[in-house]
Design a protein around this nucleic acid. Sequence first.
DNA 1: GCGGAATGTAGAT
DNA 2: TCTACCTTCCGCT
Length: 277
Amino acid sequence: MPEGHTIHRLAADHIDRFGGRPVRVSSPQGKFSDSAALLDGRVMEGADAHGKHLFLGFGGAGWVHVHLGLFGKVHFGAPPLPPPTDTVRLRIADDTAYMDLRGPTTCALITEPEKQAIHDRLGPDPLRAAADDPEAAEAYGEKAWERISRSRVTVAALLMDQKVIAGVGNVYRAEVLFRHGIDPYRAGKDLGHDEWHAVWADLIGLMREGVRNNRIDTVRPEHTPEAMGRPPRVDDHGGEVYVYRRALLPCLLCGTEIRTAPLAARNLFWCPNCQRD
DNA sequence: GCGGAATGTAGAT
DNA sequence: TCTACCTTCCGCT
């Protein structure tokens, strides 16, 4: 379930379990064996996240760069270690905990300059916005606005472009556009500055909650099934949402059938009545 | 057991 | 715009 909130949560979870301690590093599957050997026994000194990229710091030995892609999963557990299997790309363990990484798009040992190059090509990440300084957080979001406001590309595609804004995935894009009544096919340049400001601020709030709860919830309290007097709803991806994967179901607010269509190789979902040009 | 889909991205065309 | 890559899970036979 990897959107940005998952990755930031993982960075924190790694520090909680392994931060400042020497760890055993291995690659049961074999594809990361050489690098794992270089890291085995070293101290995990830090963890960082930018968008959907996770970095585990091993001091002078460099950083483990992890990108989960669509399928990657991290599993934390406590000893005893399960038998190594041929799908575990990376295993990190100490006496109290272990982490198994499966199916990542990327798992590579990189240098500090290589890490910096990744930061440089990513747009602003709502979860890296200053937590205690609203003005700084807003200014950070303006970096995305500079590109969006000049683009003829649809807002839905821009939100998925990690160079424009980092960490938003298919769920957050669909949901934030619904929450602001924005037609996903509107061009970036036709978005108002005030609209962008509201979207950016909303993403900061939604994604912080996502990190806390380790799931994506976007339905406002006044629109929950209980509040609306409707039967309880179960979303199979684990969070409460307005439109994501609700194709052909009635919109929670107006009852119009939720539509779906491919956009930028992913399935887009929206309410044609609540979301306008 | 098989086929398809899934919260993603890079690289080729 | 397409294809390749990585894994799991669900529904269908």
